[in-house]
Design a protein around this nucleic acid. Structure first.
Lengths: 219, 219
DNA sequence: ACAAATTTTTAGCTTTGTCTAAAATTAATT
DNA sequence: AATTAATTTTAGACAAAGCTAAAAATTTGT
């Protein structure tokens, strides 16, 4: 299994999650910043290997084996992200590029031991779930901050937009995974929020609030 | 810089350490388990990039830039080996294969932070020195156990032969880096040694003793 | 429904790293 | 010193992964 094949499987998995049904050649090409003709070539190869279902002009979907493989890559990616943040003090916006490389390292023991070192985390630094060895993962009961009512308290568990600019904004404003966030007030004019982050008061736009996931505290 | 180019530089560096003078095409091919013709091709490319000095039929040597690059790869390799042993509980014989992959990950910050996490180790699990960021490294004052006189005490700091079979032997017999080794007696017949490893008595052949590096305790 | 627009595939070419087989060069031996 | 022997290089080919440009299939619009 080459790096390139693994990247295709991962992309097909992610695209398949969102828009249901088979994934289009064009969508894969756009996501991977390559050309549709290249996608066709690779998809044929993956089909020959039994990793995807593919019929000309009809799009692609993962087979059970392909899904399992994709999940194992995603597991590696997310575990490495946790490692980078928790052990090497990377910030949110720095982890992705390096994890893209680390996810291709081949060693079962490496990942098992890394999992243990990190104390079997269930979520990565963006709040996304980490699949188990068997490919199972639990969707977190997370909600967008913008969807919650005033005076709700919750723990910051992830982001929707994981662009570098957004993650840098969060770093600069000391908003991090695990912070306790409380909604103090909401401006009707622009839906901006007055919140407390670990006790510190701040004022954030609706745009920010609609990209921050929070796990509301059960009261 | 591709993985393959990096592997060539590393190999040329190692071969250049031992037999002085330029390194032969054949030697590189044998070490890398590839064909001499492939080596010629790659060496031309590295020469075009200014990483090696190369004249047809005259062998190869690293330029200053090539040396610096090789040392940075070796630094990464050895730091990852320390990580695997100290943090992920790999045994001596398991680290090499995985470190061969990890050494190619591109991220300056990753290596700097890893270095810090490991508390700036000077030697890898085989007792080999880890180059600094600037490419300097200190040769340890290590000696082969077989070369020391009776009743010497020293700390086990490395191995000469790092084959899987030898490393497994050491694991099975509970000989590890950092163990205190004391030479109790020597059999004249076969030069085998009676030693204590952290207090445990054992009897080892000359062959074993001549592949174990020890840093003798100053008395 | 049928032409136009879009999407997808094919065909042929490029690059990287490798290989085999043959030619060229250097080293060894008598 | 001349002829073997060994080493090294060239030439030509191949597989992987990608690209461009053109052909084929599908979808859309009226």
């Amino acid at each position: 299994m080459t790096h390139s094949e693994e990247n295709y499987l991962k992309t097909i998995f992610h695209l398949g999650r969102n828009g249901k049904g088979p994934v289009s050649t064009n969508a894969i090409a756009e996501q991977m910043e390559t050309k549709p003709s290249s996608v066709t070539d690779m998809v044929k190869k993956l089909s020959d290997k039994g990793l995807v279902n593919y019929k000309k002009y009809q799009g692609v979907s993962l087979t059970p084996v392909g899904t399992k493989t994709a999940l194992s890559i995603i597991r590696k990616h997310r575990l490495w992200e946790v490692f980078l943040v928790k052990k090497l003090h990377f910030t949110w916006d720095e982890v992705h590029e390096v994890a893209e490389q680390l996810e291709h390292i081949k060693s079962e023991k490496l990942i098992d031991q890394l999992d243990e070192l990190l104390e079997f985390p269930k979520f990565d630094p963006h709040g996304d779930p980490i699949p188990t060895k068997n490919g199972e993962f639990t969707e977190p009961k997370k909600q967008l901050l913008s969807q919650l009512p005033i005076s709700t308290q919750g723990v910051c568990v992830g982001v929707k937009d994981s662009s570098a600019t957004f993650l840098k904004f969060l770093d600069r404003n000391k908003i991090a995974l695990g912070n306790l966030i409380e909604i103090m007030d909401k401006e009707e004019f622009d839906d901006s929020l007055h919140i407390k982050v670990d006790g510190e008061k701040m004022h954030i736009s609706h745009q920010i609030a609609s990209n921050l996931y929070v796990k509301p505290n059960e009261l």
